[in-house]
Design a binder for these strands. Structure first.
Lengths: 241, 241
DNA sequence: CGACTCGTTGACTCTCTTCAAGGATAGTGG
DNA sequence: CCACTATCCTTGAAGAGAGTCAACGAGTCG
């Protein structure tokens, strides 16, 4: 996993942003990838740094290349709902020339490829396939959002935690890694704000799952899934993992 | 597994599907609209008729031209989460050649334009603007889904009802109608399943809002919004309506 | 009319939150 | 190197908001 642009945001170092190896672009030709990388500005951000705020003019969009980003919406009194965790390969901040509808923050050290909004139009003209990629991406995100609506509206607290763990499991497996060993890159509070719970409830459920032998936590935030069967039932999966 | 959408009434009447007047297509030329309408099959369905089920192969997509459609996901034990109400002009069932991720049902008498999945590809090639329309549509839906995640994860019951009423209000105003007089096209149970509540709680809140002078219900399911200010505060709006 | 469906209301229950406090861990500066 | 502090996680006790269970009224339709 290539580039170590550990330096501050947007420094003028001409290490290009590298998109090769990201699943979304797997069927793009080398010349196309060159073009995509040429227009990108690499950027890296530290934990808790804001990438953009809700309502900001959407002057740029991003591709996450390393780390984890959280996107969220807030209510006036501080209640927060995390609407997504973004991992390498995910698009961030596609607002089609309008304002961002949520804030985005680095949940850990993050590397991004940044594109000025104008370049999006240019790229889509040059590379019609890009539009299809974006459409498919939006469509997948929408499906995930609806899954999350089911979780938030109708699942019990234990079912939410089980669903969350299995979501991470599936992501790892999809990338060819062993999903039964998870390194949680976010805090209990982040998890709570993603699942519509409180930190306390979240913590209690992790404890209960450990006592019930569903999971283990050998090191802080390193989770082992011991009983996928039961977790799956809790999460309400009717089909196979 | 089944396939065909219920026979429905639509049948072979060669009344073309009419898309003129729908906001999404406002900047399409008459020839383009002719083409779009030529490929569509009109279809109408009665209350409670299924349009498609979750997991069905996505053989077609639709544009709602009249009535209201509800889309939902369910858990094994019958818990239901409505993920969207679709009104005239809305796209339905765009699954990009895969399986539908939610079920869709007529919440009232509904008229649809039905397109075979294959035609989508054809149309997008002929009319590149269509892809942009679909992308913008998906982007808007995503923003709405995230708003709903905030509601489901973090709002109290009264805030949810207020948000819901204001959502309907804004929709009416956007269409140039007086949003303070709403005709609810769905039952209390639908509202509850959309907002992550029970019917009882929903009913109690309508009663409370009436007692508090926020709304009135002169006829069954005809709601008047009397105090937009207070409703707005409850909904957690920081900007103007 | 009688059988639905839909909406309302009351009494009770309970899941989850709130409030409070203590423990673990990591980073910082003397 | 070790106190010092901030952050994160955990646990307990108490409370409340929303759910469950149950019954009834009103409108609708076959």
């Amino acid at each position: 996993m290539g580039n170590m642009t550990a330096s501050g945001a947007g420094s003028a170092r001409r290490e290009p942003c590298t998109l090769r190896g990201l699943a979304i672009f797997s069927d793009f030709s080398p010349p196309e990838l060159d073009r995509l990388e040429a227009l990108a500005v690499p950027q890296s951000m530290g934990r808790h740094e804001m990438i953009f705020r809700e309502g900001d003019h959407a002057a740029a969009f991003f591709i996450v290349t390393d780390g984890v980003v959280r996107t969220f919406r807030m209510l006036g009194d501080g209640r927060r709902q995390i609407v997504g965790f973004l991992f390498p390969g995910d698009f961030l901040g596609l607002a089609l020339g309008q304002a961002y509808v949520h804030a985005a923050e680095a949940a850990a050290e993050v590397s991004l490829c940044r594109y000025a909004q104008e370049h999006l139009e240019t790229l889509m003209r040059e590379m019609p396939r890009l539009e299809a990629v974006l459409l498919r991406n939006a469509s997948n995100e929408l499906a995930a959002a609806q899954e999350q609506m089911l979780l938030l509206g109708r699942k019990r607290t234990d079912e939410r935690i089980a669903s969350f763990l299995l979501m991470l499991f599936r992501r790892e497996e999809r990338h060819g890694r062993d999903g039964r060993h998870l390194q949680l890159p976010m805090t209990r509070e982040d998890i709570a704000d993603y699942l519509g719970l409180t930190v306390e409830t979240t913590s209690r459920l992790f404890t209960r799952f450990k006592n019930d032998g569903l999971i283990a936590e050998p090191r802080r935030n390193a989770i082992q899934l011991l009983d996928l069967e039961t977790l799956g039932e809790l999460a309400g999966l009717d089909d196979t993992l």
